[in-house]
Nucleic acid binder design. Structure first.
Lengths: 255, 255
DNA sequence: CAGTGGTCTAGACCACACT
DNA sequence: GTGTGGTCTAGACCACTGA
């Protein structure tokens, strides 16, 4: 059973009593994640059907199903009944601001727009290096932008990206884009943002930020620091955002 | 098959093509949630084994399993391999502050303490009535307290609770308690908090709050509004908290 | 209609906890 | 050892999509 012909990766170890027991479906999941990382299945595309995968990996359909279940729960894949299972993508307009928890107190937001301000290569400072697992001084792409909801500026973001991956980013190319940043990163650099951690604090606006967000100096703002991870829990972005929360709030669900 | 002897609730409709299709396992889940609401299985206690439940509901063990899977994902139940499946409880010290996302920037917190300040019956104002699905003016229990981490005050909370349920709360009884509020609510009133929604903003401290939290007046604070729900998505608490975020931050994971 | 994911079953066996 | 949850299988059938 551990013989399989078409699988691109190493053989499967059927579960056996051991200190490092890993069920079959989780091994299948790892193989599938590898396929995603390797780009075998591209964002937005359908992956093979459950029964095809079952044959390919030499396990039952139910086992493949359980692997896909976990991946769907982690938003790596989305299932669409009757159609197939697809690789998640930030390219879908509905998923453009998947990680943005800011929302208006009352009305609906029709239009969100990202306004790039600057983009340059620079050495990572200590906080950035720590978050991105770099040595201090290694290069990162530093990007500043404003975010507006219906032409009202509500967020100022400073982002730091691994130069290894995003070194080719330029302000000009960003200004010509219609899409969200993560969607651009996915299409241009093949990097999918999978999950993120945020740390929130209340701070007073300094002069520059007050001007950008059109609020009074020393006005309270929400400071949101974010580390964003791609496949394999690799951090690729560190971000610091200042949110104006007079007409908006950060929404969170606790379970 | 839809005949069963011991089930306390109505008969099960096996899935049939219909506009309101609900799979069997979800019907089982609803029956089990009803059993929880009715108090048939108390917090902390083990529920019957999967095979017993399968017999009771007249379905296969796999179907019961899927129902339990969903309930475990919603933190209604916890599975413990080899031991059984248990009703979740806020009485477990590790779950005392399950919904509190505030954490220190650096060191570990050893001791969290709730310091009740006041507790009285009063009419609900508009915001509270809206959140709790009350008519304006209906009674709620208004409770104020401070929260300290290692004897440093970091949060001031104002809470409003359905008087129907929590009317018997008194300041004296709270002051004699060692446990977290939700743990008290669970033991004294049989109400389990299941999930919550939070809305966060940055605000300036007013004089009273600045004094309580020992920060400067107009200092930026994080304002956290929370609606807390029990079984059946019934809101039972509305809460407004002011968090001092100089040495602490609100931590959130995005998936 | 064929093909996909979704549900349900019955049975075998494994991992873990307790006695 | 016994009883619990956890994994895996094979097969039947249902629900949804699109040609």
């Amino acid at each position: 059973m551990s013989t399989d012909s078409s699988s691109p990766v190493t053989h499967i170890v059927r579960p056996v009593a051991s200190p490092t027991f890993s069920p079959l479906y989780r091994q299948i999941k790892e193989l599938m994640v590898s396929a995603l990382r390797a780009g075998e299945w591209a964002p937005g595309m359908a992956i093979p059907s459950e029964s095809e995968l079952a044959v390919r990996f030499g396990v039952s359909q139910g086992t493949v199903r359980k692997a896909i279940d976990e991946m769907a729960a982690e938003h790596l894949l989305v299932r669409r009944q009757g159609k197939g299972t697809f690789v998640e993508s930030h390219n879908n307009p509905r998923a453009y601001y998947r990680f943005l928890r800011l929302q208006p107190n009352d009305r609906k937001v029709r239009q969100k727009r990202s306004i790039p301000l600057s983009c340059k290569l620079q050495p990572a400072d200590r906080a950035v290096a720590l978050a991105l697992h770099l040595a201090p001084g290694e290069s990162v792409v530093a990007l500043e932008r404003l975010l507006s909801f219906d032409d009202e500026v509500v967020v100022f973001d400073q982002m730091f990206l691994l130069a290894d991956i995003f070194g080719e980013l330029t302000l000009e190319s960003l200004q010509q884009e219609e899409h969200s940043l993560y969607s651009i990163f996915e299409r241009r650099f093949g990097v999918r943002m999978i999950r993120a951690e945020e740390r929130l604090r209340a701070v007073a606006a300094d002069r520059r930020i007050a001007e950008l967000l059109k609020v009074g100096e020393t006005e309270p703002l929400m400071l949101v620091e974010r580390i964003t991870y791609t496949y394999g829990d690799q951090p690729v972005e560190w971000r610091r955002g200042f949110y104006a929360t007079d007409r908006y709030h950060y929404y969170n669900e606790l379970n």
